[in-house]
């Protein structure tokens, strides 16, 4: 009776939206500024995955700039997408394009993507190995608090027993703690507006329990 979804986006001519996003990013969060100054995105662009079909390979180049060349995002508030569920990635890309999910960086990137592009990109990243961010296992009291919240809301009804997700439901186990915490907060405020069901469930859970949940999930 409960559930949730998320997603990413896909690519048309990636170079153009990427440049757009680079130039347009100056006013964005400090983390992004630092990233740009270090030339990480450019580096990512130059080292694409050669085995991929040309179209998709071109389109995913841009992603590594933020989500990491090795699957480890360059900022803790950016999600892991390597090894994420393909259906989830696809739906997020679709929602960025529709404007159902807001993000100043992602929306321009996905603007030109068609459905098949998004599905291909989703599948590409789903096949990648999930990276280990080396986040510590949560302390026992934190885990107990998290599991109490889980039992109350029923997270595993959708994210499944090991929090690996399936289909359009994302894997949570081992996801970046800061990203999880931010996403939970954004669901609560509806800043993340593309899954009101998740908003409902997060609002029905005490904030302290949610903090424990983010820490617990990150450490799995």
């Amino acid at each position: 009776m409960h559930e949730c979804h998320v997603t990413i986006a896909k690519a048309g001519p990636v170079a153009a939206p990427l440049l757009f996003s680079l130039t347009g990013m100056k006013s964005m969060v400090g983390n992004w500024m630092g990233m740009i100054s270090r030339g990480i995105i450019l580096g990512a662009l130059l080292s694409a995955a050669p085995a991929l079909a040309q179209g998709v390979a071109e389109k995913v180049k841009v992603c590594a700039g933020c989500h990491g060349q090795d699957g480890k995002p360059i900022d803790k508030a950016i999600p892991i997408i390597w090894g994420q569920q393909a259906g989830y990635i696809y739906i997020q890309l679709r929602d960025f394009k529709r404007g159902d999910r807001k993000n100043e960086i992602m929306q321009p990137i996905v603007a030109s993507f068609e459905k098949n592009d998004m599905l291909a990109i989703a599948e590409y990243f789903a096949q990648k190995p999930w990276p280990n961010l080396g986040q510590p296992r949560s302390a026992k009291d934190v885990a107990q608090r998290a599991l109490s919240a889980e039992h109350s809301v029923g997270c595993t009804g959708c994210h499944l027993e090991q929090f690996q997700g399936d289909g359009t439901v994302p894997r949570l186990a081992g996801q970046s703690r800061d990203y999880l915490a931010k996403t939970i907060a954004d669901f609560r405020t509806r800043a993340r507006g593309n899954n009101p069901g998740m908003t409902d469930l997060m609002r029905a859970t005490p904030p302290d329990d949610l903090a424990a949940l983010a820490e617990y999930l990150a450490g799995l």
Binding site: D100, S152, G154, T199
Partner: peptide, 22 residues
């Protein structure tokens, strides 16, 4: 618990939450 939100295009649409009392 009730919490109104508009139709979310095929996403989970509970209009609130039912939660087990721990």
């Amino acid at each position: 618990r009730v919490d109104s939100s508009p139709y979310p295009n095929g996403k989970l649409w509970l209009g609130g939450a039912f939660t087990a009392i721990p």
